[in-house]
Amino acid sequence: MKAEYINPFLESARMVIEQMIQIRPSTGQLSVRDIKFADRHVWIQIGITGHMTGDIVFGLSESVALRMISAMMGGYVITEIDELGRSAISELGNMISGNASTMLYNQGVIVDITPPKIMDSHFTSGYGAKRAIAVPLIMDGIGEIEIQVLIA
């Protein structure tokens, strides 16, 4: 995995989160590790096809997801992740991935993305052991969202 492939996702995530939530996230420590889907987390999976194939997985705790959804809803306090909340957090992953695919295109890497899927612990148990490049984005007052990149 080349760094220039993950950088568009990090740059896009920082830009989209700043626009949608009005917080500029900072980048945590990059690591390469086995994917582990923690309970009580929201996992958004977006497939990538084209010059590179694989998945981008955004992981965040339910409490962070609630704070992000609340911020996306103009500060209206959300206490549970309902269908509207799932749609909002899915769209956040979609916007990040769409912008990143445009950045990759501008680098000569042509990719398409699949619609976002919210994965729950039942689905993730069958996902299989894979290694990913993982980078957390830290949002002051909200928490962390982790971007996991699995490119074949």
Rank of each mutant, 00 (worst) to 15 (best):
S90I: 13
K2W: 03
V42M: 08
M119F: 07
S125L: 09
E91C: 09
I113E: 04
L84H: 00
M119I: 11
V16Y: 07
I151E: 02
D82M: 03
A88I: 08
G50Y: 04
V77R: 13
E4N: 10
G98E: 09
M73E: 13
R67K: 11
K36F: 13
L66R: 06
S97Q: 03
M95G: 04
G74K: 11
F123R: 10
G75E: 04
K117E: 05
S101W: 06
M73C: 10
I48P: 00
T27V: 15
T27Y: 02
E146Y: 00
G93E: 08
S70Q: 02
G85L: 08
K2Y: 08
M103R: 03
S61K: 08
G74W: 11
S31T: 15
N106K: 07
Q45V: 03
I138H: 09
R33H: 07
A65Q: 02
G141Y: 09
Q45L: 14
V77Q: 15
R33N: 12
I138S: 06
M52K: 07
V42T: 14
I89G: 00
V109M: 01
I46M: 07
P115E: 08
P8G: 13
A13L: 03
I110G: 00
E91D: 14
L60H: 01
M119D: 07
L30K: 12
G47D: 10
A100M: 13
K117F: 01
G75L: 10
S101Q: 07
D34M: 12
E18S: 12
L150T: 08
E80M: 09
R86D: 08
I89V: 11
L137C: 03
D82A: 04
R86T: 05
G28M: 09
A38M: 13
L66T: 04
I17V: 14
K117A: 13
I23L: 03
G143F: 09
I21M: 11
I133C: 11
I35G: 09
I48S: 07
T49C: 00
R86N: 07
A65I: 08
P136C: 07
